[in-house]
Amino acid sequence: MATRVPRIAPSEITPPEVYFSRRALLAGALAAGVSTLARGAGSPPAGAAPLEYTANPRYSVSEAPNRYEEITTYNNFYEFGTDKEDPSENARNFQPRPWSVTIDGEAETRGTFTLEDLLKGQPLEERVYRFRCVEAWSLVVPWVGFPLSSLLARFKPTSRAKYVEFTTLYDPHRMPGQRSSVLAWPYVEGLRMDEAMHPLTLMVVGLYGRVLPNQDGAPLRLIVPWKYGFKGIKSIVRIRFSATQPHTTWSLAAPNEYGFYANVNPAVDHPRWSQATERRIGAPFLAARRPTLLFNGYADEVASLYQGMDLRRYF
């Protein structure tokens, strides 16, 4: 069943002064411990199908999530155009179902599985994660999904599987951005096996309690909250277990600017801009810039994965 996200008319968008005051109010409410009010910060359109899930407070930050409109109109998804607003417009008629994913490489169980099959027996949970783009802006997003580890375990990766490689759908008819050669299609991303199996690494199928909108990577995307956003590959059609490090799209496009690891790190600048601070989308004028946290604030959970590694070299 397809999800169509209706185009939001400019007149329906809350004027900044109204939502800024609302956010201030929410910040106050949060401080008072009324965290459930945060849901009021933006609601998905009624057309999006609701999902069954449970909230996972252990893996959720207490910061107020961004509005639904912000998360769904400010997207880097070059398959649907290179401007931030392009995906919300160009992905409107994309049909993310039926969908299937091919599993291959160093695993005992390989083959092509339907999305329904992959989701079977995976209880969905909501996690409110920080999202830090390599372009030095950030969001807080209530994703709905399940740990990648519980999906990968199903295919019994062999001892030779050291990496996992993910591939996005390649179909220039359905993804008009792929008609331009701005990147080498299809988009490929990858993780080291231990990163893939980390409990924070999430397979996402929903947003704000509803089915994931097309522009955010429907029907199935990756979220690795301690890495820059481009690691979170969207609309996945292939998962391959590999003995060697995958050649990822951005690291091929500009090897000196985007590494394989892409861990959020305020001390390692992008060659062309600083990563020390970030601007939170939707925050009030003059109060949006904040210091970037090592591993995007998830250092306690993930720093041990990189012990002894030179993070400047393996950026």
Partner: peptide, 16 residues
């Protein structure tokens, strides 16, 4: 756009 007048919107990141 910055002040949300006359229905002008500058998107999710008006500063940029």
């Amino acid at each position: 756009g910055a002040f949300g007048l006359f229905g002008v919107s500058l998107g999710a990141d008006p500063v940029k």
